[in-house]
Design a protein around this nucleic acid. Structure first.
Length: 492
RNA sequence: CGCGGGGUGGAGCAGUCUGGAAGCUCGUCUGGCUCAUAACCAGAAGGCCGUGGGUUCAAAUCCCACCCCCGCAACCA
């Protein structure tokens, strides 16, 4: 192997999750999408890095922990662990998880901020205004509704404090250009338009520190202040790679994987990720992420999930009912990535049965049975005789790959179920139960082809439904049929 | 005028950017098949595409006005 040929790399990130609440279905969705991309690129043979993380600083966390009578760090330990458990439950194969309270993160951030300061992109100014602890940000007079934050329905506080500001304005034109030139993609298009319109509004510089928040990382050049939680949290995407401004301490991972190929985010945080984050990176002359995939919102039975309505959907609830792969399927197949989507339990049962139990699950059963019955369980390789569905198999994989390459994740997944339906139709035309009596040799050829088709479907399915994909592949790999059993029991 | 999404056969949605014979999944009805998880396959019924106006040979699709739903990430914020 030639020494200098470096393998293609792929770096995908999930949003950094704020730990003030337990993981919900929205967290699960973004993370599963990232997991699918990571698994897919691993299968393509690329050297893949998949990061997840938890955001643990800020006034809100301090407040929440106090309410529970715990030190913030202990509270963070408990909450962060819940996310970890959730990813385990959902079979998320991440490479590393970073917590913003970890030393490696803090060191990385400190070196970053110090460098910004050194390069004179940070200046000091007095700031006063209405502050909402819920948003962790200052609100304009216009945004307030009778003195309350409209989002959080709590009174804003008038705060006057010394702050350090980042020279955001300086970088806005460059960011705009990068987006327009396609060097930093924002998908879907409507989210890109939103970001571009924000850029045109000539955003003011933003503050990067807080004087009155103690639960945070001290600002290296003024330890009386802590770093604004958002500014610090964004840097998890590089601190996890071991970023440092000191060459000697620079992580190998950073060299290898930055810039990120895909950053999965939600539309509510696109301003921070598509404007503030790139600006910070530009300030240190670092390359920008290549692509943001911006997800939509979830509703449950057409309504916002809320505790008062008693309709909060925990990932665990779905997993208990539909299994891990069932849950992954339901979340990924319901709507195209980037759209808002509704999850209804009744619809879930319906889609689970229609696609998983009756379509793919049943197809695997019927072909498996025939292989045992008509071929005595032998899937022998006769390449010259397996041409019947070669074209079909090739097109299944090509179509799937093309959709994946265009980030059409839902469509790619559903294309496999269309393939399964086509195979069902084909079986009906061929009438194997008749061939068994009249032309057993032809039947054998068909069965070998069908096994191959299922093997292809299993391979494509694997990034989405890892367990199922593996079971299907193992079953039809040959030479001996491995009965996978019932993949998806029907649910009533 | 905070921002954004949406109103298409019984249900859930695609189609709207780039006008040109209304599609998909589920459900319902009828028929077929028996290898299969009461599954699979074929066919049928069912829609003046939120309302009103406009542009056009032609509008679900473009323009204007209006009505109605919903969300802004979250666990007592």
């Amino acid at each position: 192997m030639p020494k200098n040929v470096s393998k293609k790399t792929f770096y995908v990130t999930t949003p950094i999750y704020y730990i003030n609440a337990k993981p919900h279905i929205g967290h699960a969705y973004s993370t599963i999408v990232a997991d699918v991309l990571a698994r897919w690129h691993r299968n393509l043979g690329e050297e893949t890095f998949f990061s997840v993380g938890t955001d643990e600083h800020g006034a809100k966390i301090a407040e929440a922990s106090e309410k529970q009578g715990l030190p913030p760090k202990e509270f963070a330990d408990i909450m962060s662990e819940k996310f970890r458990e959730c990813w385990k439950l959902l079979n998320i194969q991440y490479d590393d998880l970073i917590r913003t309270t970890e030393t490696r993160h803090k060191e990385s951030v400190v070196s970053f901020m110090q460098e910004l300061y050194k390069r004179k992109f940070i200046y000091q100014a007095e700031y006063e205004g209405w502050y909402c602890k819920g948003c962790e940000k200052f609100l304009t007079e216009k945004e307030l509704v009778s003195g309350m934050c409209p989002d959080h329905k709590r009174p804003a506080e008038w705060i006057k404090e010394k702050n350090y500001f980042f020279k955001l304005k300086k970088f806005l034109p460059k960011i705009q250009q990068m987006i327009c030139d396609g060097d930093m993609q924002i998908v879907p298009k409507k989210r890109e338009n939103e970001v571009l319109s924000l850029l045109k509004q000539n955003l003011p510089d933003f503050s990067v520190s807080r004087q009155n928040v103690r639960w945070g990382i001290p600002l290296p050049f003024d330890p009386t202040q802590t770093i604004y939680v958002w500014v610090e949290a964004l840097q998890n995407y590089i601190s996890i790679l071991g970023f440092s401004t000191t060459a000697a301490q620079q992580g190998e991972r950073f060299q290898k994987f930055w810039p990120a190929d895909v950053q999965i985010i939600g539309k509510e945080i696109s301003k921070f990720h598509c404007i503030f984050w790139p600006a910070l990176l530009l300030a240190l002359a670092l390359p920008l992420p290549k692509k943001f995939l911006v997800g939509g919102f979830f509703t449950f039975d057409g309504q916002k999930m809320s505790k008062s309505l008693g309709n909060v959907l925990a990932p665990k609830t779905l997993v208990e009912r539909f299994g891990v792969d069932g849950t992954r399927f339901l979340l990924l197949s319901q709507f195209p990535y980037g759209e808002d989507g509704d999850i209804a339990l009744a619809g879930c049962v319906e889609r689970y049965n229609a696609h998983l139990a009756d379509n793919v699950g049943n197809l695997v059963s019927r072909i498996g049975t025939m292989i045992q019955k008509y071929l005595q369980g032998r899937i022998e390789t006769h390449p010259e005789k397996q041409i019947i569905l070669e074209e079909t198999n090739k097109s299944i994989e090509e179509r799937f790959s093309a959709l994946m390459a265009r980030d059409q994740i839902q469509e790619a997944l559903l294309s496999l179920f269309e393939a399964s339906t086509k195979l069902n139709q084909h079986i009906e035309e061929v009438k194997p139960w008749k061939l068994a009596k009249t032309h057993p040799t032809i039947l054998k050829q068909h069965l070998l082809s069908w096994s191959h088709t299922l093997h292809v479907i299993g391979r494509c399915l694997a990034p989405f439904l890892p367990n199922t994909g593996e079971r299907i592949q193992r079953a039809f790999r040959g030479p001996e049929f491995q009965n996978p059993g019932i993949l998806f029991p029907k649910i009533s």
